[in-house]
Design a protein around this nucleic acid. Sequence first.
DNA 1: ATGGCCGTGTTACACGGA
Length: 259
Amino acid sequence: MKIATFNINGIKARISALSDWLDTAQPDVVLLQEIKSVDENFPREHFEDKGYIVETHGQKGFNGVAVLSKLPLEDVSHGLSGDESDEQARWIEATVMGDRAVRVCGLYLPNGNPAPGPKYDYKLAWMERLRTRAKEILTLEEPAILAGDYNVIPQDEDAATPESWRKDALALPESRAAFRRVLNLGYTEAFRARRLGPGHYSFWDYQAGAWNKNDGIRIDHMLLTPQAADLMQDCWIEAELRGREKPSDHVPVWIELDA
DNA sequence: ATGGCCGTGTTACACGGA
């Protein structure tokens, strides 16, 4: 089973590039972030015609997550528990029925800038809710993957120019600590279990020729329960997509599971 | 040397992103 997470930065603007990628890359499951669309306007038939089941959790203008799957889905749920008043669409869960059932959680973690401030407070509160949900999922003792745009640069080696991110919400010590608190529950960060060292990025800003200078950051992550980690065959970043026509500012991160 | 963008909603910019 091949699963990818991909922040597409707007479904309307990305429908062509996303379709071309799906046709050639052929993922079984895709977790999308920043669809920037309400559910009614998401072009679901377009992807159903390609053989995908489509589940969306959108809102007007911003945010929004979705799951595309060639395999049957069960127990789909929308939204992150822990704050009923939170109206931002940043979380979706489903169980993928492959050779093994795999619980997938697609997430779009708040950016949090400027920090300090209310947006940063929201980010940290959201991460605490994430930790609570991650803890619940571990108790199931089943293969599960928490994947998406975490908006966290875990370590300095995950940025080409770490000094320029020093005061940014993506790299502040509190953000990194909150990310580690989730990991330390007992999750495996899939990419780092396969590839070590600097120079691996999943986002390059549209500004200042960041892609041409390879001035990137690694902020799209996949966290695995022990049962999922045992099924991992490989994990990689498809950086090449950033150089294509009309790209998202993020690229897909992939995992292959023996499931 | 320095600054450089993009998408959405609404219709000339505001806002968010990272």
